[in-house]
Design a protein around this nucleic acid. Structure first.
Length: 886
RNA sequence: GCGCGGUUAGCUCAGGGGUAGAGCGCCUGCUUCACACGCAGGAUGUCACAGGUUCAAAUCCUGUAUCGCGCACCA
């Protein structure tokens, strides 16, 4: 039977088998009618057409660990899954694909294009859901939601209408971040700053009123000079005071433009003169407003220059126009120099091109419930982990700007606003003021009754305008009453503003309460060289290959073991290997258990020995450590504690110590007790490990016969598993076992130092330091690899016999004919040097009267004890050395 | 510029006033009847630097350097 079990754990079949069984038995389903305390998480919805990357794996694994742990702690758990339509991301992908086929969305028209997007969604949608299942995610799939489900859409539109009616949503012509590739406005959060190398161009504009006099101007963007409608200097700048109020010549198209004074200008920067382009820079726009300067938009929505830029430039891309404008200035002898320059340029997150500040008519939201949302985090009603994000959040909330929520896209929730057909032009071109517009338009979740007379707003809403409702818009009323507010939110700090902050505001605004109690921010995963994982760099591993190669459990465990609180993770495939190895270790330990023959029925197990008592005590300690670590969301600690306990304490020490108690020669009572202890440890350890390695543990639970037919480990409760613990007996057993382990280490070291194979059985003599060690000789032989350990209080060793001072007493390893006095002397001297150094350190401290007076008694006593121990050890070593010499 | 984090073994990181730790890697020895995805042993540290507080500093404080990240400005 045992022979048939593979030596390595093969996860693939086991994992798919158990996942199917869990799903079939509805193990993940949350019951809103349950009496158990609720525990809930909503998944950060991945892009519906996305594929699983390592960030998802980490994030989903953490949520799964929390959900599975909560179930085992007796909670009624809802882990609500779903996907996001991801407006701009999905639309960009489909547009890119169409472009390859030579099609453009504007040529196709709205309906045809949306058809294409839906096809794409049907083709690729749900892939990531399958992949999450592959990982073992215990989501309640019956409650899976999508941001474009009918009732979800309704919720989004209702929110829009409500906020509009409350006066928080308004239309306005403002400077927005324009993405020339996607051709839509973006929110400030969607703009990422990138260092960009370019030039600072120094040029000169001639003064109109005094020909021959020039004003030197530094700019990074000569391509927009056609849109200049003024030049500004600081009013305090004496160099230019005489020019304020005069004019200079814009070289092309040639035109007189005023020279104004504005506080905003930095005297130190460049020449202290700014060319003002109100249409293409936020700050310039504001200066322009202050001084009544004309707004001249020289760019088309796609980033090419328009007719206002003049015939030389019309149709040219802004990037090419930059050099061309500089060249032209040079020809006109107006360019002084090009100076290499690096500055930060805002890029469109999605299209990865510089955004263009652009004046346009958009919908904005004045954020609601800002004070409540700020306070709840500051006061700790909502906890953030790591805590430092509290400050980042607070800072953003304090400087919050209105949110541009309209997007010039087609894929998304269309803005529920209709304009009377005969007034559309006036409204769209901003000819009417806000009040007049409000009176004319229809804002509602359904179109006006006489729809034929109305035109719906062309734009859709920012994706995040739907995501911010996720924690409650995904729940039906009965579900909501049980599971909202949710317990934990697990997400990346990169979307703290995009999503987390907005959800908190939405919670207070629409549900009058916080949407979740704790937020755990996961680490950002980087490659071994510290770079972000990204598709374009090609440094992102294929998760499915990883899952196949190391098993879902191996990947989960490996990743969590290196997931620190707060800092980034350096991803290394070696870690996955360690996870897999750990799975195999556990697999083999169970295999070992299954190879044991059972004792015959009716044998009464003996009282637990010191090894059993010790390991059970350590298991208790493990459980305590896990409790604390879970409380602090220290997943790496949990994983490491599990690993250390099982591998080192249980396999390397306990199992090795009791192998003789399992043999045929062992007393049946002792064997029964040992098997019983093994099973206690397996049973509880497997339960504790389950959230991290769900499939393997479920498999072993069944193989070991712990579960009842039709029951699952994942539905077991941990609370009942703990055993009573005799503290006094436990402490004595643990101290003896610790001494045995220390002595074993020294004996093994002796063997290794003399180049004796660890499998070679050696004979030892022990001058015992206590009266109980004689009873443990059998185990010691097993652990050390000794044929015999003779207990001899009066042992006088021959000259040069290798020896070590141990917690068990002085241990000698007589080597017939192999004695090398010189070697042994060296060895002992090395050991003595170490001890002397330690002794010196302690002595120095104890000799300091300040230390003895001021340090606490426990500390001083502990130092005295330490000195005594080192002292004794040194004395023993001296004797051995003397014996060697004599 | 403001804020946040990091700098500890070859690598990745934990620790956070009282004897410097783990995993991997490295070296040595083991086909020991659960496991070579394994077993046993070993080496390796001015805890970035400089001051300060303290009986005692890797740990607390101040400053510096350096690397990240976020925010604001940068024409």
């Amino acid at each position: 039977m045992a022979e048939e079990i593979s030596k390595v754990y093969q996860p693939s079949e086991v994992e798919s088998k158990w996942y199917a069984r869990w799903e079939e038995a509805k193990c993940f389903q949350a019951d809103e009618a349950s009496d158990r305390p609720a525990y809930s998480i909503v998944i950060p919805p991945p892009n519906v057409t996305g594929v699983l990357h390592l960030g998802h794996v980490l994030n989903a694994t953490i949520q799964d660990v929390l959900a599975r742990r909560a179930r085992m702690m007796g909670k009624e758990v809802l882990w609500l899954p779903g996907t996001d339509h991801a407006g701009i991301a999905t639309q960009s992908v489909v547009e890119k694909k169409l472009r390859k086929e030579g099609k453009k969305r504007r040529d196709m028209g709205r309906e045809a294009f949306l058809g294409e997007v839906r096809n794409w969604k049907d083709e690729h949608g749900g892939i990531i859901i399958k992949q999450l299942k592959r990982l073992g995610a215990s989501c309640d799939w019956d409650r899976e939601r999508y941001t474009q489900d009918e009732d979800y859409v309704k919720a989004v539109l209702e929110v829009f209408v409500k906020l509009y009616k409350d006066g928080l949503i308004y239309r306005g012509e403002r400077m927005v971040n324009w993405c020339p590739v996607s051709q839509t406005a973006l929110s400030d959060e969607e703009v990422i700053k990138k260092k960009s190398k370019g030039f600072l161009y120094f040029m000169r504009y001639e003064i109109v009123e005094s020909p021959g006099e020039f004003l030197e101007i530094a700019t990074t963007r000569p391509e927009t000079l056609m849109g200049d409608s003024g030049v500004a200097v600081n009013p305090k700048d004496p160099r230019y005071a005489h020019l304020v109020g005069k004019h200079c010549w814009r070289p092309f198209p040639r035109k007189e433009i005023p020279i104004v004074a504005d506080e905003h200008i930095d005297i130190e920067f460049g020449t202290g003169v700014l060319k003002v382009t109100p249409a293409h820079d936020k700050a310039d726009y504001e200066i322009g407003q202050r001084h009544g300067l004309e707004v001249i938009d020289v760019l088309n929505p796609d980033g090419t220059l328009n007719a206002l830029a003049g015939p030389d430039f019309e149709g040219m891309d802004r990037k090419d126009a930059r050099e061309k404008a500089a060249d032209k200035l040079e020809e006109m002898e107006l360019l002084i120099k090009r100076e290499p320059y690096e500055n930060e340029v805002g890029y469109s997150e999605r299209a990865d091109v510089p955004v263009e500040p652009r004046l346009s008519l958009q919908w904005f939201l004045r954020y609601p419930s800002v004070p409540e949302a700020t306070k709840s985090v500051a006061d700790g009603d909502i906890t953030f982990r790591p805590e430092r994000w509290v400050k980042t959040y607070g800072h953003w909330m304090e400087n919050i700007q209105d949110w541009c929520i309209s997007r010039q896209l087609w894929w998304g929730h269309r803005i529920p606003v209709w304009y009377p057909k005969d007034r559309v032009k006036e409204i769209q071109f901003g000819e009417l003021d806000e009040e007049e517009v409000r009176k004319l338009i229809h804002v509602g979740t359904v179109p006006p009754a006489d729809a034929e007379n109305w035109t719906q707003d062309e734009d859709v809403l920012d994706t995040w305008f739907s995501s911010w409702l996720w924690p409650f818009a995904t729940m039906q009323p009965d579900t909501r009453s049980k599971f909202f507010p949710t317990t934990d939110l697990v997400t990346g700090p990169d979307i703290i503003f995009f999503w987390v902050a907005r959800m908190i505001m939405a919670g207070y605004t629409f549900e009058e309460q916080l949407p979740f109690k704790n937020v755990f921010f996961t680490s950002l995963i980087r490659d071994a060289r510290g770079r972000k994982l990204s598709k374009s760099l090609g440094n992102s591993p294929d998760c499915l290959i990883l899952l196949d190669e190391y098993g879902a459990d191996g990947v989960r465990f490996g990743l969590l073991r290196i997931a620190p609180m707060g800092s980034d993770i350096r991803y290394d495939e070696e870690r996955m290997k360690e996870g897999r190895n750990f799975a195999t270790k556990l697999w083999n330990a169970v295999r070992f258990r299954q190879m044991q023959t059972e004792v015959r029925a009716g044998v009464v197990p003996a009282e637990p020995g010191i090894y059993a008592t010790d390991i059970l005590g350590k298991l208790d300690a493990l459980e305590d450590k896990l409790e604390t670590a879970y409380g602090n969301y220290r997943f790496n600690d949990i994983a490491n504690h599990l690993y250390e306990f099982f591998w080192t304490q249980f396999c390397s020490w306990y199992l090795e110590s009791v192998k003789d108690d399992l043999g045929d020669a062992a007393a049946p009572e002792v064997k029964a007790m040992t098997l019983q202890t093994l099973d206690k440890v397996y049973r509880r350890f497997i339960m504790l490990l389950h959230p991290f390695m769900p499939h393997l543990t479920e498999e072993l639970w069944e193989r070991l016969g712990f579960g009842q037919e039709g029951q699952f480990l994942m539905r077991e409760e941990l609370a009942a598993a703990r055993l009573p613990w005799d503290a006094a007996a436990g402490a004595e057993a643990q101290s003896r076992v610790a001494a045995i382990q220390e002595g074993t280490g020294r004996a093994r070291n002796l063997k290794a130092e003399y180049q004796l194979g660890s499998n070679r059985s050696m004979r030892f003599v022990l001058k015992p330091a206590n009266d109980w060690v004689a009873g443990e000789v059998g185990t010691l032989c097993l652990l050390i690899g000794a044929s015999e350990i003779a207990i001899d209080p009066d042992y006088q060793s021959e000259k040069g016999v290798p020896a070590a001072v141990t917690a068990l007493g002085e241990l000698y390893m007589p080597l017939d004919g192999l004695i090398d006095i010189e070697e042994e002397t060296k060895r002992l001297q090395k050991e003595m040097t170490k001890v002397e150094k330690e002794l010196e350190k302690v002595d120095k401290k104890l000799a300091n009267p300040n230390f003895v007076d001021r340090a606490s008694t426990e500390i001083v006593d502990e130092h005295r004890q330490r000195r005594a121990d080192w002292d004794k050890r040194l004395e023993q070593l001296r004797e051995m050395l003397a014996n060697l010499a004599g």
